[in-house]
């Protein structure tokens, strides 16, 4: 029951924020909404007891990728008209409130699901000799999914070479 409520709350938040990402006029607002979306998705992972994925989600998406987005937004400076910024504190109270609510929400979920998973530990089917979320993932990547994992490294190399080819002025 509680889990269902958490799931739907998070889903509504994710969808609402995702809509905000594409409808926001200001690119920075879009990016901020995007961070929130990523954080809510991470919370969803925690609910699903995939703690490792949640951490990676925050590190890679909310951390790395959003910083890149912000760089792009600031470098490109998407022709913002100065009138929009006459009253920068217009919505600051509302925004602060929203951010606080969000933070509480996420923290609550994390605490709640942490307690819950501690109380109802169910042993997984003894398929692999390792315990724990992260170890399990590592085990799978280096045994069952070794070949796709290695192929992913070629994929990343292609991305790197491609980026250099396209970005370098005269190669």
């Amino acid at each position: 029951m509680a889990e269902t409520i958490v799931f739907y709350t998070l889903s509504v938040l994710i969808l609402g924020l995702a809509i905000l990402v594409v409808t926001a006029k200001n690119a920075v607002h879009s990016v901020v909404a995007l961070v929130m979306t990523f954080l809510c998705v991470a919370a969803l992972y925690v609910v699903l007891e995939a703690e490792f994925l949640a951490v990676i989600q925050i590190l890679v998406y909310a951390g790395g990728i959003v910083v890149l987005y912000l760089f792009v937004v600031m470098l490109v400076n998407l022709g913002r008209s100065p009138e929009e910024h006459q009253d920068p504190r217009r919505l600051s109270v509302f925004g602060l409130g929203l951010a606080g609510a969000m933070l509480l929400e996420v923290a609550g979920i994390v605490v709640y699901s942490y307690n819950r998973s501690a109380s109802t530990v169910t042993a997984p089917a003894a398929a692999s000799p390792v315990q724990g979320n992260t170890q399990e993932l590592g085990w799978l990547l280096y045994t069952d999914y070794l070949i796709p994992f290695e192929l992913a490294s070629v994929l990343l190399l292609v991305a790197m070479v491609g980026a250099i080819v396209l970005a370098k002025r005269d190669l």
Binding site: L151, L155, V158, A159, V161, V165, L166
Partner: peptide, 9 residues
């Protein structure tokens, strides 16, 4: 994805 990424470039 490996194929598609190569083709984008």
């Amino acid at each position: 994805e490996t194929m598609a990424l190569s083709f984008y470039v």
